[in-house]
Structures are given as structure tokens and as C-alpha cells.
């Protein structure tokens, strides 16, 4: 079956980020979004541990471990960068100052609920900034494979795993489609042209609604 690679999902999400937007990318897969900004656009990236306007990783051997991102990876600074303490950092998050946060997901529900921090009671729990990031950014977007490794839907009527946030997600970029969440419903906006509506509905755990034509999801080879 046709599906987008992680790089291609990240590329698609990057196309919706405006020049000059303040953006937080979750640890891991969402960090890829930074690589695919359209030419001429420069978002300002925020990291919870206290940097605005950081850049890509330094060359190996050039790391400064006082200059890291929330994933504890070494980063660099871009002109106009700023440092700040954790209370200010999370004021930026909860206070509605970020334009968009792009995060990963275990499950997303049609009511906007997100589960992305815990797979259940086994193991040592760890939350970090996940529960903070889902509140306050003007848009909370998710990038994810459309289904789990076992082929089960990740987009559901209701989440089954422990919630990260309630009613917080506004858009989902998957390996098959772009879906908005509005009024407690999944609204299908774009889908792979090779995939029929029935096929994508079968891979989705809640009803996909349409309020207009569904655009083709066209992404370059990456």
C-alpha cells in the first residue's frame, strides 16, 4: 500500500508553518519538520529547556553540552537567539505565545484528545513537557503513521491509552491523509490520490467527515 515516509509526513507539516512563526517541535520524529521549511521561510524554534531560535546540530566534536534541546541533543544558535529560565519557557507554552506545536502520538481521538506520553502502567512513568505543550499553542498538530505497526488505527473515537491532553489537537498529518479536528469530528482535508475514501475509512477508527472536496496529498520524493 502507498504511504508517506516519516520524512514526507514531516515535509507536509512544514508547508503549513508561516515565515516567522514561533514553533515547538516535540522530541524525536517531529524534529524532522525543521528540515523541510520551504525556501525563504524561517520559523523560530522554541525548546522547553530555555532557548528560542536555535539551529541545527553542530558538527561532531563541536558539541557544547550547555547548549542542548529538550531531547538533550546538542544544538547551535541562530542570530536573534535568546536564553530564559524554565518558568518563562513554559509561560511561552501555556500563555498562548507559540503559533504551533507539532507532536507525535500513540492515539488521537475525534474529540481532539491526545495520548502520547504513556503506554500504560508498566515501566517507569515519564512525562516531561508533553502535557504542557498540548495547552496554549495556537495550533497543536500531530504527525504520525496512520496506523500502528500492527496495522491498528491510531485515529479513534476515543483514546484507550492514558491521556496527555483533552480536546487539544487541531490537525493530524498522517502517512495517508491530512485531517482536521473540528466540533468533535475528523474532517478529511487531503488524502493520497491512490487511496479511495473507503480504504482510508477502513484504516481509521472513527468516522471521517467531509465538508467539501478532498484535495490530493502530493508530497515530493524525499
Amino acid at each position: 500500500m502507498d504511504k508517506l515516509s516519516n520524512n514526507q509526513i514531516a515535509w507536509r507539516a512544514a508547508q503549513d508553518i508561516a515565515d516567522g512563526a514561533y514553533v515547538n517541535l516535540g522530541i524525536g520524529f517531529p524534529e524532522k519538520v525543521a528540515q523541510y521549511q520551504p525556501p525563504g521561510r524561517h520559523a523560530i524554534f522554541h525548546t522547553e529547556n530555555g532557548i528560542l531560535n536555535f539551529g541545527e546540530a553542530p558538527a561532531p566534536g563541536e558539541e557544547d553540552w550547555d547548549l542542548i534541546n529538550a531531547g538533550k541533543k546538542a544544538v547551535t544558535l541562530r542570530p536573534g537567539a535568546a536564553f530564559f529560565h524554565h518558568a518563562d519557557s513554559f509561560a511561552m507554552v501555556r500563555g498562548g505565545h507559540l503559533d504551533v506545536a507539532i507532536l507525535g502520538a500513540y492515539e488521537v481521538a475525534e474529540n481532539g484528545d491526545l495520548a502520547n506520553w504513556s503506554t500504560g502502567p508498566k515501566g517507569v512513568p515519564a512525562v516531561g513537557g508533553a502535557m504542557d505543550l498540548v495547552h496554549g499553542a495556537k495550533r497543536v498538530a500531530i504527525i504520525t503513521d496512520h496506523v500502528t505497526k500492527d496495522g491498528q488505527p491510531k485515529l479513534l473515537r476515543r483514546c484507550t491509552l492514558p491521556l496527555t491532553g483533552v480536546g487539544c489537537v487541531t490537525r493530524v498529518y498522517t502517512s495517508l491523509a491530512v485531517i482536521d479536528i473540528a466540533d468533535g469530528r475528523f474532517m478529511l482535508r487531503e488524502k493520497l490520490p491512490s487511496l479511495g475514501l473507503e480504504a482510508i475509512q477502513r484504516l481509521t477508527g472513527a468516522e471521517l467527515h467531509r465538508d467539501g472536496p478532498v484535495a490530493d496529498l502530493i508530497v515530493p520524493e524525499l
Partner: peptide
């Protein structure tokens, strides 16, 4: 944690910062 010798209070990162502030 597993042998119970250390107790964990898990706090979201921004909440931890704000509680300290």
C-alpha cells in the same frame, strides 16, 4: 524505583517549574 526504595512524584515539566517559582 522498582524495589520501592525511592518514591517518585511525577510532575509535568512546566508545572514543576511553576510550582518552584
Amino acid at each position: 524505583y522498582r524495589d520501592g526504595s525511592v518514591e517518585l512524584e511525577l510532575v509535568p515539566q512546566g508545572t514543576l517549574a511553576e510550582r518552584i517559582r
